[in-house]
């Protein structure tokens, strides 16, 4: 079923919307949740919560890219669950990815501000647009999808060493870029 049609089901409050979402994007949600949590029960919970969140947000929301909108919800819910989990229960791969991102920032808690958050998000998007497609995709796979270096290597056909190196350089560049944009990191 087309994404537009699925969204219309939500707007019509037709419960078939959940079924169609599950058929089309259930795997994507599980994939993202699993990359972060690596626990079957937690993943299932996140996927179900994703459907509920979609039901509650559409309407009024009318996403342009339904797959990404769904994936974002799954990602955010999985990250919340990840924080809630004890250190011993956390997925080492997700721990690794977040530790890598520590290189880009000072580590201090940053006071949350919606306008500033939006500015940072736009800056990161702009930074990524300026990169070569391959490098950009590797970055997004690692830090948005939380894919393991090994899986990224298999998907892109590059060695794990090359993937690690690309990520390492992008982190340095991102840090410099954010600083140059006057963003306090």
């Amino acid at each position: 079923m087309d994404d537009r049609e699925i969204i219309q089901l939500y707007r019509d409050r037709n419960e078939g919307a959940i079924r169609e979402t599950s058929l089309k994007y259930g795997r994507l949600c599980s994939f993202i949740a699993n990359n972060i949590l690596k626990n079957h029960e937690d993943c299932e919970e996140v996927v179900n919560d994703t459907y509920l969140a979609l039901w509650n947000s559409i309407p009024p929301k009318n996403p342009d890219r339904f797959s990404v909108f769904t994936g974002k919800i799954a990602r955010n819910l999985a990250l919340k669950k990840y924080e809630y989990n004890s250190a011993s229960k956390r997925n080492p791969e997700a721990v690794c990815a977040l530790e890598e991102l520590e290189e880009c920032v000072s580590g201090k808690d940053y006071p949350e501000n919606e306008i500033e958050n939006k500015r940072i998000e736009m800056a990161i998007s702009e930074f990524l647009r300026e990169q070569e497609e391959e490098k950009r995709n590797i970055f997004v796979l690692r830090y948005w999808y939380f894919e393991s270096v090994r899986n990224i290597s298999i998907r892109t056909g590059y060695s794990e060493g090359k993937i690690k190196s690309v990520l390492f350089r992008l982190r340095i560049k991102l840090r410099k870029y954010l600083k140059s944009e006057g963003i306090e990191i």
């Binding site: 974002k72 924080e83 530790e99 991102l101 580590g107």
Partner: peptide, 12 residues
């Protein structure tokens, strides 16, 4: 900023 906050920004 800490890594969690950066990860959230990357999420959007």
């Amino acid at each position: 900023m800490n890594s969690k906050q950066l990860s959230e920004r990357i999420g959007n």
